[in-house]
Design a protein around this nucleic acid. Structure first.
Lengths: 146, 146
DNA sequence: TATTGTTATACTCTATAACTATA
DNA sequence: TATAGTTATAGAGTATAACAATA
């Protein structure tokens, strides 16, 4: 029996996201990784980040928190950090081969997870759901003008 | 510019939930509380939980984690715990007046948050969204039969 | 023995403040 | 002075394992 339609949408959203996140977190843990590391890997692969501050913003964490994760990732050989010759204040973060490999393994897990999530949905339904979620997020995003 | 529709639905879901959760967490913090405490209060008010194990399940945490939170809530005067005379292994958790008051304050904040989330949505759209989210959650819930 | 809950301990993620290095 | 990043420290939330109390 599903919960009544009168349940606050915020509760439904949080509950769904928690359920989905737990399933994916488990997949990440099985692959020997975690959410923040996965987020950092994605950002490094799919965005052009000029510096660590932008990377932290992309991941949605503070700079010091990012440093914490990068320290661990450097220790385990996933990334390297070196000074930018053009501006030695900037530390260039780069994936190692090992980091690349982990990224691909996690990407495979992510694709499998998403396929599982989409079970029983049509493409149109997914598009509709994504659209509704975007509108929802916009309602609690208080950035007036970028 | 919204992210492309090709973004994995899991990513869209996680991002939306994180945005919404941050906004609500901020409201909870302003009211001097937090998510786990709010979840515990909701469960105590709206469900009939026979014991702490059921309460932990309702909140989605382990028993020891619940004990941790209940210790804090007892210290700050939100709940009381006493032995069930019928089964002295069971600890009955009850809200104090102060706990009731906090519940009502947080409920007010939750209602305001949900109203904010619903901005620009019709009731039908919210019902549709909830329905889609329920189906999504069902895809990653691996309980065969209760 | 099984059930209920607590204690002890530790780990992850996160943040703020103070600091270093560079410009 | 301003910017980029690190270090130091702390706190919240969570979990597992070992334990105590009760049945």
């Amino acid at each position: 029996m599903p919960p009544p339609a009168t349940a606050p949408i915020g509760v439904v959203l949080a509950r769904t996201a928690k359920t989905a996140a737990r399933a994916f977190d488990h997949a990440l843990a099985t692959a020997g990784s975690s959410q923040p590391i996965w987020q950092i890997l994605i950002s490094l692969k799919t965005r052009t980040v000029a510096n660590q501050r932008e990377l932290a913003d992309a991941v949605g964490i503070q700079g010091a928190t990012l440093t914490h994760h990068l320290n661990g990732m450097e220790t385990t050989g996933l990334v390297t950090r070196r000074r930018d010759p053009d501006n030695r204040r900037v530390h260039l973060v780069e994936l190692t081969d090992q980091g690349e490999q982990l990224f691909h393994r996690l990407a495979t897990a992510a694709i499998a997870h998403d396929k599982r999530l989409r079970t029983g949905f049509t493409d149109d339904e997914i598009t509709l759901l994504a659209s509704l979620l975007h509108r929802l997020a916009a309602n609690v995003t208080d950035e007036p003008a970028p």
